[in-house]
Amino acid sequence: MSAETSLKEWLLAEEPQSRRQARWGAWYQSWLTFRSNTLAMAGLIILVLIILAAIFAPLLATDDPFAQDLGQRLLAPGVDGHLLGTDSLGRDIYSRLLYGARISIYIVLLVAMVAPLLGLVIGTIAGYMGGWTDEVLMRLTDIFLAFPRLILALAFVAALGAGIENAVLAISLTAWPPYARIARAETLTIRSADFIHAIRLQGAGPIRIITRHIWPLCISSLMIRVTLDMAGIILTAAGLGFLGLGAQPPSPEWGAMISEGRKYILDYWWVATIPGLAIFAISLAFNLLGDGLRDVLDPKEGGA
């Protein structure tokens, strides 16, 4: 108890004594703001549950997700110990859902690492340098933005071959332009701020200014945007899976599961609906989380 209160005091100290304490204190303040947002917390809890389910899938699963049993095909939820029923090949949907979470999270992580980073680099460089650099980079961005995202992803997958990694790559390559736009717009306002002038006067070069002074301010709005876009990315991945261009059978990717279930949707609704609900849950969780993050990270609100 006393250890807990002293930790709290240490975190909320008015006069931190070290860099570490200052940083942890700032994180703790943000966490307190975040925690007071009920919906965002709900989103976070759902996500944590999904991540835990993905990590402990082998322990939680009741069956082998790939084991077929044609005698047990298309069982309704709850029948014969199959919690969420079975699909057309008699595979346990509950177990497949758990393993599918791994794929979804894998996709999300990969896309979240590639697309925003690419957008951040291109957008901040364009915004800070201005002139012809800006022109070239932003026209390139426009070209990518001019294609419908799914169609462009389809083209990439068609060229690179079907498969999860290629789907992720395709999604990332089509997802970066909006981030570049945001990063550039942010950079344009930050660039003319006095604190950037001040660091220029200290003799800092453009690389240092972009990476150490502009990035930290852009990253928060990008993070918000990424979490809000996550739903769309998962849906695009599911869409590619549904079209047979993402994860390949027998992989338990959620989109592919819906695709397989669509033939039976009228008679055996659960085969397509249950993975659909899973996609819905993770998308909703990301959206709620993104809204909460906006409250915490928005520099205009921060600190007040």
Partner: peptide, 18 residues
């Protein structure tokens, strides 16, 4: 830069918020 430095008008805008 070693010889000349500047102090700006608005102290709310001249320090990096993070």
């Amino acid at each position: 830069h070693k010889k000349v430095q500047m102090v700006f008008q608005d102290p709310y805008a001249s320090l990096h918020p993070r």
